[in-house]
């Protein structure tokens, strides 16, 4: 598709919210009169390279990349596919890559970019494309099913304190956007042939269960085996991209690696180990 110039009067062409004078007024207030180019990598199912298409977008004050993508969808390309729901960085649906960095489209402000140059939007590179910016993340759900589920302890009363759940709570902040899976170099570009590696998201989930004070299971053996935690070389890209600000490497992966050393690898620790029982 060729580059299209934006119409002179934006409000006349955009969809009006009927009867909403307030929306109209806000939109007029937000108008900046500037336009910039959004380049979107588009393609059909399974097309990993895709094709880059440029669109002119009117910049509004406080605009995020998702707004710009929806502007393109409304005005230039009604067949453009993009997945989104909450627009508040809580649902994790709009994960994609902006100027090569894995980001949530709804949490990435255009003010942060040099708009003299085109802003590039492409789907997550680790997963197979369904259409345009939408990728098939179902591999993650299959990994999730492998994780040993929570099993409640019965040997002590169901009573614990805030300090006991602090570590587990951090892991529960995850919104499952899978940006960490996308950026992880063990998984990236792997397409349909994923290695035996759960990925950062599921180390987080396993750690959240392993640090729960009332859980009776221990997943450290699983992570070290089929989870492939040893493949992680702690280069921290997952932590860098996490929109929920979970310290994935420091608080989930490294503690689990340390627990694996405790349980399996440290010969001195073995002297004190009590028959492999999970620690209190």
């Amino acid at each position: 598709m060729s580059t299209q110039a934006a119409p002179e009067d934006a409000t006349s062409a955009t969809t009006r919210y009927e009867g909403s004078v307030r929306d109209e007024a806000l939109r007029a207030q937000a108008r900046t009169g500037r336009t910039f180019t959004l380049r979107i990598n588009r393609g059909e199912h399974g097309d990993s390279a895709g094709r880059w298409e440029s669109y002119d977008v009117e910049l509004a004050a406080g605009m995020v990349v998702l707004d710009a993508v929806l502007f393109v969808q409304a005005k230039h390309a009604p067949d453009l596919a993009v997945r989104w729901n909450c627009k508040a960085a809580k649902c994790g649906s709009c994960a994609a890559e902006v100027n090569g960095r894995p980001r949530l489209l709804c949490k990435t402000r255009l003010e942060d970019f040099n708009l003299a140059e085109p802003v590039l939007v492409q789907p997550m590179q680790t997963f197979v494309r369904i259409k345009d910016l939408v990728t098939d993340v179902s591999w993650n759900y299959r990994v999730n099913e492998k994780i040993i589920p929570f099993r409640a302890r019965t040997d002590r009363p169901w009573k614990f304190y805030q300090r006991d759940v602090e570590k587990a709570q951090e892991m529960r902040q995850c919104i499952e956007c899978f940006l960490c899976q996308d950026v992880c170099h063990v998984l990236r570009y792997s397409g349909e042939e994923k290695p035996a590696f759960f990925g950062p998201r599921f180390f987080v989930r396993a750690a959240g269960l392993d640090f729960h004070p009332m859980d009776a299971e221990d997943r450290v053996g699983q992570l070290r085996g089929e989870g492939g935690i040893g493949l992680c070389n702690i280069t921290k890209c997952c932590t860098e991209v996490c929109p929920a600000n979970i310290h994935i490497t420091d608080d989930a992966i490294i503690p689990e690696k340390e627990r694996a050393v405790d349980a399996f690898d440290d010969p001195f620790r073995g002297i004190f180990r009590r028959n492999g029982a999970p620690k209190p």
Partner: peptide, 27 residues
């Protein structure tokens, strides 16, 4: 491995920290 986040490394077989040498680093 990787040079930076979301920057590709050349295609190769990768063992991370499970190889003969690197697996001992955490220990």
């Amino acid at each position: 491995s990787p040079p930076a986040c979301a920057v590709s490394e050349p295609k190769h077989e990768y063992t991370g920290e499970t190889g003969v040498l690197l697996r001992w680093l955490p220990v």
